[in-house]
Design a protein around this nucleic acid. Structure first.
Length: 598
DNA sequence: ATAGGGTTAG
């Protein structure tokens, strides 16, 4: 089970598939575009749904203040307006997303003796759910029963949604379970759909598929949304075969895929660099009159950019315009990022200007892409200009903006600037996260500011940001490189008391540090412990300790480990070969080594 | 006549 945050995208091992790319994809895409155009233009203009603008005598409310004023005024009327009028105001306030304001208005209603009805209560439940206050939401449900109203499926769906917003998937599942048992209010396809999404977000694809089967058994027919949710999740986990199987299953059950289903699949195959398959899917959807939209094209463009294939991405972009689909900020951002990845900042900046000229609004994401681009090119001052420009445009820099720039400062050795920015960040509220500390600690260690790094570590430990082994790896490495092996060891030994477990990387760092200090016996002991702790040594661990032995003139022990490595079935990588070459240059080379190498 | 719920791209 891998949480979505940790999922990785297309790996470079697919690189070979990209060769010979542009022509086939491009020509077939052009064909698809032409088909698309033909179909599109033969379609008659869709009739515009006549929206009956009912003339309601709603109090005119255009902002929160208006709503409060109208509300206060209504409280003065005698007789008091009906609950319906008040509920209308509440729903206006909710439309402005001012959930806490709506709650406080509903409290005032109660205090003024205006009895809530089912509608009011439903609104208030929804508010509490959006405020992450499920406890209150549930107590309003209690009121529902007390007043003799029957909550319906949508009310329960709101509550389930609230649990999911709080990342409480188990509670959401529990509520669904109760609904299924009680039989009073049957969960509907939306209830199941939301829970499926919740499970997928946690990476529990199998549980989601299980629920899919269960809903069928329970007499609730899954729809395209439920299937698409799972297909998308499988694609994001690169489980493409499973995704395509589920896709066939849904079709065989007579559930028609839509543009979202196809876009998810295309995203999945693009991330694996399977451009041919992506094009096949694109053709297939057009043949079914399911037309690719801005999402679909952007998926293509982004995947191409991430592989450094900006020229191809640009042709897809042109195609998109040909078929009258307007690129949006996300599309432009992908292309900008593509140029940034190649270090072509001039072109990236041009795309940025194009975006602005087209009347799109650059968002924090756009700025972060450029800031990152400049930082990676060590053009930190230009990054700072953009960072400042954000505030002028009313965009507040977010955690990513700060983290990127702090990293940029660290990488060019401007520690005081990095610290300054960090203080500024803290002054803005809860912006610093674990990454911020990791970046800063790494920067301090790499710039030989170990005691400062330790201070920041203590500060982090005092916060409720959670701890991560990566943070400690950074410090243990920094300390041992600086020759402070005792401090490194202390930190290493303190891990379990903090509820953290060393990972392979941690052992490698510690072993390497110990070897550098000539403490090879201790290093060897730790090496053996690696295995006992279920952290099997890898190539890198072996290389590290063998290097330690060689540097400490323990040639025979080094050779013994190389033999062990071979026996364990590890193949020699570039570093191992280097070690062997070193060993061969020694006078006392053991003949066994020679036979080993063959 | 007033309410509330689910799927895709950076």
């Amino acid at each position: 089970m891998v949480p979505k945050m940790m999922r990785f995208t297309a790996s470079s091992c697919y690189g070979s598939r990209l060769r010979g790319f542009p022509c086939p994809l491009q020509s077939s895409l052009v064909a698809v575009a032409n088909d698309y155009l033909a179909t599109f233009h033969s379609q008659s203009a869709l009739p515009v749904k006549s929206t009956k603008t009912e003339q309601r005598r709603l109090p005119k409310v255009t902002n929160l203040e208006d709503a409060f004023n109208v509300f206060d005024e209504m409280l003065q009327w005698r007789p008091l307006p009906s609950i319906v009028r008040f509920t209308q105001i509440l729903s206006q306030v909710v439309k402005f997303k001012h959930y806490s304001a709506a709650v406080s208005l509903s409290n005032q209603m109660g205090a003024s003796g205006i009895g809530a009805d089912a509608f009011t209560l439903a609104i208030v439940i929804n508010c509490f759910c959006h405020l992450n206050q499920m406890g209150f939401g549930l107590s309003v449900l209690g009121k529902f029963f007390k007043l003799g109203f029957e909550p319906d499926a949508a009310t329960f769906n709101t509550l389930i949604h609230g649990f999911l917003l709080e990342d409480r998937v188990a509670d959401a599942a529990g509520l669904l379970e109760k609904l299924m048992e009680s039989g009073n209010c049957k969960p509907n396809v939306i209830t199941f759909g939301m829970l499926v999404k919740g499970l997928c977000m946690k990476g529990y694809n199998n549980a989601a598929i299980h629920l899919l089967k269960k809903m069928e058994e329970g007499g609730c027919r899954p729809d395209v949304v439920v299937y698409s949710t799972i297909i998308d999740s499988l694609c994001k986990d690169t489980l493409l075969v499973d995704a395509l199987n589920l896709f066939s299953e849904m079709i065989s059950k007579g559930i028609a895929p839509n543009v979202i289903t196809y876009t998810s699949l295309i995203n999945g195959v693009c991330r694996l660099g399977e451009w041919k398959e992506a094009t096949r899917l694109l053709k297939e959807m057009v043949s079914k009159s399911i037309f690719p939209d801005a999402h679909t094209f952007s998926v293509f463009i982004d995947a191409l950019c991430k592989e450094g294939m900006i020229e191809e991405a640009n042709s897809v972009f042109e195609m998109m315009i040909q078929v009258d689909i307007e690129p949006n900020t996300i599309t432009y951002n992908s292309i900008m990022d593509g140029y940034c990845l190649r270090g072509e900042m001039g072109k990236a900046k041009k795309v940025f200007e194009l975006l602005l000229n087209k009347g799109f609004v650059a968002d924090a994401y756009s700025y972060n892409i450029l800031i990152n681009g400049y930082c990676k090119c060590k053009r930190i001052d230009e990054a700072v200009v953009l960072f400042k420009e954000m505030s002028c445009k009313g965009l507040s820099p977010d955690t990513i903006s700060y983290n990127t720039l702090i990293d940029g400062f660290c990488k060019v050795g401007r520690i005081p600037d990095a610290q300054n920015l960090f203080y500024q960040m803290k002054a803005c509220g809860d912006l610093p996260n674990l990454w911020t500390y990791a970046i800063l600690l790494d920067g301090l260690c790499k710039n030989q500011k170990l005691s400062l790094a330790m201070e920041y570590l203590r500060e982090l430990e005092g916060k409720k940001l959670g701890l991560d082994i990566v943070i400690y790896n950074i410090l243990i490495e920094g300390l041992s490189i600086a020759g402070k092996i005792d401090c490194a060891r202390n930190l290493f030994c303190s891990l379990s008391s903090k509820g953290l477990q060393p990972i392979g990387w941690t052992y490698n760092i510690m072993i390497s540090g110990l070897c550098n200090e000539g403490l090879i016996n201790e290093a060897e002991k730790l090496f053996k412990e690696t295995e006992e702790k279920g952290c099997s040594p890898d190539n890198c661990t072996y290389n590290t300790i063998i290097r330690g032995f060689i540097n400490n003139n323990e040639t025979f022990r080094a050779m013994g480990l190389i033999q062990q490595m071979v026996e364990m079935g590890f193949s020699a990588d570039a570093s191992t070969v280097e070690l062997i070459v070193d060993l061969l240059s020694k006078d006392d080379v053991h003949p066994a080594l020679l036979t080993l190498i063959e």
